[in-house]
Nucleic acid binder design. Structure first.
Lengths: 240, 240
DNA sequence: TTACTTTCTGACCACCGGTCAGTAAGTAGA
DNA sequence: TCTACTTACTGACCGGTGGTCAGAAAGTAA
């Protein structure tokens, strides 16, 4: 039916304008300092209306995290689809995470902000479950890349793809978060820029994973990867 | 004066009982779900009294973080004082961090919980400054150990102690935090225990840092370090 | 025009962080 | 022991916030 369709569309649109408004104010004042009334005003609706679309302030915040994860997933996909060896693509994933942090610092921060409220933050909650599944999907991207890397010889064969992906996930996320909390402090007291530190850390990780013999593809040199290197030089990647 | 002394002592004691009470309730219900009235009741004081000792709920929470940092610092000191090569002691620091997480999961979690409320979370605030300085101190422990490791040959000489310590700080912290958020999930879906994953990650980091030639001290074998190994085997450590 | 559904809202509530005037307890000097 | 003063504490209160609900408004179908 046309009308039902239109209604569905408009409903989704309303929902989006609410999330837009929430985002704007959450990001400018912090979650605990913004009131539902302010969000309502920004969205040009009454507070009660917002509660028709979202059960609670927390759920509204989750909608923002969902947006963030969507974007990040697309960033990752770009890195995965490169035609390069596994190690190189792994570098690029890390690079993408950093780029995401730079492009959307607020989205980035929001992803780490969940207070463990057991009442809300449980697998039963469909919204949370969805977030979990998104995270799982990104994790599996990492696993696949590491597997590829082992297969194409760029990554040590005694590396466990599952554990490594988990480790990198936690490390990189936590790492960038630390940086985001202390970027000023970093520059002021240690005279190190965030970008520099990220790059350095990626080198460290590369050191931990790379095959001593190097990637068999002659043109692939994971030691010298940086953001400008768009990949595509390593011809050794096996196509499925 | 005796009386002034006693008063000072009693004041400190009151403060501690308040923090005790706050800890108990914060940890059981989460920070945003506990009220100051509840804390007051647990401390057997009126709410107004609590505000004589702490300016705000946030400041009270900071007092808990301070406790956490004190404990963690002592854990680290134990690892530092081992008579072992730099790389081995670095392993032990990571081990200690994990042990701290196991012994005091709530303290651990609390340290990462700061919402960036710029109004409160600034260098001007003496309480925050104190926390920063504590963090700085722990960071310098890491730097020193890495320097020792380079000197005694257990760590690659082209490693930058400052950047590496920063990277490890962020990585390990974020890593364990991820684990803490998803420990159940980890076991259920990936059949990996937290301890196992930590150990694996430490091996990864070791791989990234260790000198290819190994620690010159014959008896030191950083590849095979685990929690039971209390160190003290590597005689190559230079004493200042 | 009427009957019905969907969408929205003003007014309200319970609760919470934080304040303040005022009380109780302790101290010091006479 | 009485008095003046300081310190430690509290009950009662306030403004603001997340969340609710009865009912208005707008849209739809006949």
């Amino acid at each position: 039916m046309g009308i039902a369709d239109r209604r569905e569309r408009e409903k989704l649109q309303r929902r989006n304008t609410i999330v837009d408004a929430a985002e704007k104010i959450f990001f400018s004042k912090g979650i605990s300092n913004t009131t539902m009334d302010e969000i309502a005003e920004e969205a040009e609706l009454s507070k009660a209306t917002i509660y028709l679309y979202f059960k609670s302030k927390e759920e509204l915040y989750c909608a923002i995290i969902q947006r963030a994860m969507d974007i990040l997933k697309n960033y990752f996909k770009e890195a995965i689809d490169l035609n390069a060896c596994g190690l190189e693509r792994l570098y690029h994933i890390a690079q993408k995470l950093y780029q995401f942090y730079k492009d959307y610092p607020n989205y980035f921060e929001s992803m780490f902000h969940r207070e463990k409220n057991p009442e809300y933050f449980s697998y039963e909650n469909p919204m949370i479950k969805d977030l979990m599944e998104q995270g799982e999907e990104m994790y599996m991207m990492g696993v696949q890349i590491i597997k590829d890397g082992i297969e194409d010889g760029s990554i040590r064969s005694d590396v466990d793809p599952y554990k490594t992906a988990l480790a990198l996930d936690g490390m990189l996320g936590g790492f960038i978060r630390t940086i985001s909390l202390e970027e000023d402090h970093l520059m002021k007291y240690h005279n190190i820029s965030a970008a520099e530190l990220i790059h350095y850390s990626m080198e460290l990780i590369g050191h931990a994973l790379k095959n001593k013999d190097g990637c068999p593809g002659k043109k692939c040199n994971p030691d010298k990867i940086n953001a400008k290197n768009k990949g595509g030089k390593c011809k050794n990647r096996k196509e499925k």
